[in-house]
């Protein structure tokens, strides 16, 4: 039980073939109100079968059948384990997870399955567990490690890993993937959850923040420049001079009349 506190185990040996008839899976999903399921079976045709799937609105969305080729259990590794409820880190390696559409969907499904509870913050020393998925040679190698943080001489610790199991080598068998339409519908985000668009702020290719500012037109008349005597407005000066002249003339005239 890898997701112990959050999962239900159905142990009855009922005949169940999710790829032929999904109704019973949908019934169980409805019963326990769970959207993710993992189903193990063994038959001559498909030995050591593991089906991982998820449901949307109580109907099958994705389902991927994996054949287990090699298995080492959790208890076969004689190491300290992680405590319950740690939020695991997920690492996917291999080109296939980027290129192949089936692998892409499997990546998303595994992420959905193992990413744990959604949190806004995480305790730095509590990052202890790694799920590691590698796609190569048509196989998927599923490993699980414990993180050991070592001193590195800087703030960031040096990481060492210790395998704690379980470890599986898997082959993809049958798949049932949701149609693009349904998949799109299931990924629909509520309106208010989308981030609000910030106006006039953009990022360029190098990641620098650019802002656009709208200004009113600059008034050049009221611009303050350097003050100098020679730049004083001429019209005012002329008027002053005339006034002085007229005053003097008046004085002279007065004196003349008095004489």
């Amino acid at each position: 039980m890898l997701k112990k506190p959050l999962s239900v185990l159905y142990k009855k040996k009922n005949i169940l073939r999710p790829f032929d008839d999904a109704t019973s899976i949908e019934f169980f999903s409805n019963k326990s109100d769970a959207a993710l399921f993992m189903f193990g079976s063994h038959s001559k045709k498909r030995p050591h079968n593991l089906i991982i799937g998820r449901l949307f609105d109580y109907h099958i969305l994705d389902m991927i059948e994996l054949g287990v080729e090699k298995f080492k259990s959790l208890s076969s590794f004689q190491t300290a384990k992680c405590p319950f409820g740690t939020k695991p880190c997920l690492v996917f390696t291999g080109e296939d997870f980027e290129l192949n559409s089936e692998h892409q969907r499997l990546k998303n499904l595994l992420l959905d399955f193992f990413s744990g509870p959604k949190t806004k913050q995480v305790r730095l020393s509590g990052l202890e567990h790694i799920w590691h998925f590698t796609a190569a040679e048509g196989k998927i190698f599923w490993r699980s490690y414990r993180i050991l943080m070592k001193k590195s001489g800087s703030r960031i610790p040096r990481i060492e890993l210790e395998e704690i199991g379980p470890s599986l080598d898997l082959v993809i068998r049958r798949t049932k993937l949701a149609s693009d339409d349904l998949y799109k519908r299931s990924r629909k985000q509520p309106k208010q959850a989308k981030p609000k668009k910030v106006k006039n702020v953009s990022m360029d290719a190098f990641g620098t923040k650019l802002g656009r500012i709208h200004m009113t037109k600059q008034n050049l008349d009221s611009l303050q420049t350097r003050k100098m005597k020679g730049l004083k407005r001429k019209s005012d000066e002329g008027a002053e001079d005339e006034e002085k002249m007229s005053r003097q003339i008046n004085k002279l005239e007065k004196t003349w009349t008095q004489d």
Partner: peptide, 13 residues
């Protein structure tokens, strides 16, 4: 946000 790393580098077979 998911504590997820995806490494698309080709592997050494």
């Amino acid at each position: 946000g998911h504590l997820l790393a995806v490494d698309p580098n080709p592997l050494d077979i």
